[in-house]
Design a protein around this nucleic acid. Structure first.
Lengths: 197, 197
DNA sequence: GTCTATAGGTGGATAGAC
DNA sequence: GTCTATCCACCTATAGAC
């Protein structure tokens, strides 16, 4: 009967692995890396996550849950949709500012090497993410706070998510955090203005 | 004295590897993969490219050369800057339509795992790419064919490149080619219109 | 639940024959 | 320039003691 607070080993493994994947990718980390960082053995990790794909699936599920929770918080914290859009981009900025990529953006680049369970959960992450942004744009339209091109909101949402994911990706090789902020500002200048303005 | 046309083994290796990297990444392919596809041995590949990083460097250099050559062609083929911008996005569309990612976008996701020579060449690819787009936007401004947010053209160029790279990345996991086109159209709707229109 | 020990496979890379 | 043969490091995963 261990007296350890509450964060079990499984959670610690997920924490360490998440950081690693956001830096070097799912195919770029090994059980030995995580074991070394946590001071445990690879066999111990296999006890909690029998196969690497099991760990991968849990990683995406947890990341998606947290991300969606953050989106709900944004929705309740700000009544103004323009502020909501800015807060949304801040989620991405925090990631790149810590020298990481979006977990799902990273894994999307590795998509072809992943098994079906992981692929399905990645698809779900982007679907839910885009869906939320689309709803945000709808509300912004009603409020008269956000503008978007003639196309439907789903396409505009796709464009926003794509731009933020791409800006993080490109920033690694060129531009860094400043580059990300520059691209984000251009996007906000395009969407964040009164309809018809 | 082989009668083979002109494409030497080194070039065939680069061709096969390029395709492979654009699909599964630099860390996702092995010499054995390429050797198997070409019907040669891994030792033969090592003759032409002693270390994997040598192959990686040549890959980026060749890709960059071809990409920049395509940009020059676009510049001479169309006098209209709006058409030039559309042709530029078509370069990306061709890639995703063939189920690949931009070679450098893929490698940007693996940036942290790469050695300095490869990193430097990736940085150069994005620098030159962004520079070309920035000049395109300048010309478009003079022509009155392209609009862009108040920010300077470099930032707008960064945003365009980021959006296209991100749209390809996201398309793999969600949306496919149609998703890419949707995001691209939103971007074109934002930039491709007369200034002040 | 964590360990030691190890299996079984694959990775990049090299030596030397042809 | 391509081959056979091989090295050694590392990977994922498992069996079984504690």
């Amino acid at each position: 009967m261990q007296a350890r607070p509450k964060t079990g080993t499984a959670e610690l493994i997920l924490d360490a692995t998440e950081r690693r994947v956001q830096s070097v990718g799912y195919n770029g980390f090994s059980y030995a890396d995580i074991a070394g960082e946590l001071g445990i053995t690879t066999a111990s990790i296999h006890y909690h996550f029998p196969a690497k794909a099991d760990l991968g699936v849990r990683l995406i599920e947890r990341y998606t849950q947290r991300f969606l929770a953050a989106l709900s918080e944004i929705e309740t914290a700000h009544p103004c949709t323009l502020e909501q859009l800015k807060s949304y981009t801040a989620l991405y900025e925090d990631v790149i500012a810590n020298d990481r990529l979006c977990l799902c953006g990273m894994m999307a680049s590795e998509f072809e090497t992943l098994d079906e369970p992981m692929r399905a959960r990645l698809t779900e992450f982007f679907e839910r993410n885009e869906e939320w942004v689309a709803h945000l744009l709808e509300r912004g339209k009603e409020q008269g706070m956000l503008a978007y091109p003639g196309a439907d909101v789903r396409k505009a949402a796709n464009a926003i998510v794509s731009m933020l994911e791409g800006a993080m990706l490109v920033a690694r090789a060129h531009g860094g955090v400043a580059g990300f902020r520059a691209a984000r500002d251009v996007m906000l200048a395009g969407f964040g203005r009164p309809v018809g303005g």
